[in-house]
């Protein structure tokens, strides 16, 4: 399955079904990551229910130091 993640085209296994599974695949599941799928912000508690599919545009952001 081809996804666009943070502007880059990324190939991931077709078996991935949800944002949570995508984060597990990317080994990011132990971090506080906020996801946006096709410009729709996903509440963190909804990541497991949010389905992903071919050609989805996904933004993954996190908190960094700032003033």
């Amino acid at each position: 399955m081809k996804l666009k993640i943070n502007g880059d085209e990324v190939q991931v296994p077709d078996a991935l079904q949800s944002v949570t599974e995508l984060l597990e695949h990317l080994k990011l599941n132990d971090q506080m990551i906020i996801a946006e799928v096709n410009e729709k912000i996903i509440q963190n508690e909804e990541q497991n229910n949010k389905q992903i599919k071919e050609d989805d545009r996904i933004e993954l952001v996190r908190f960094v130091g700032g003033g």
């Binding site: 990551i33 993954l60 908190f63 130091g65």
Partner: peptide, 28 residues
């Protein structure tokens, strides 16, 4: 205070300052 930025998806496990802090003690 802190900022929101894109995650580098190719660097899993990169440290984050939030992990160092007891978030219950602070209002973000």
């Amino acid at each position: 205070t802190f900022a929101v930025r894109r995650m580098n998806i190719y660097e899993a496990g990169q440290p984050n300052f939030l992990e160092m802090l007891d978030l219950k003690k602070y209002t973000l």
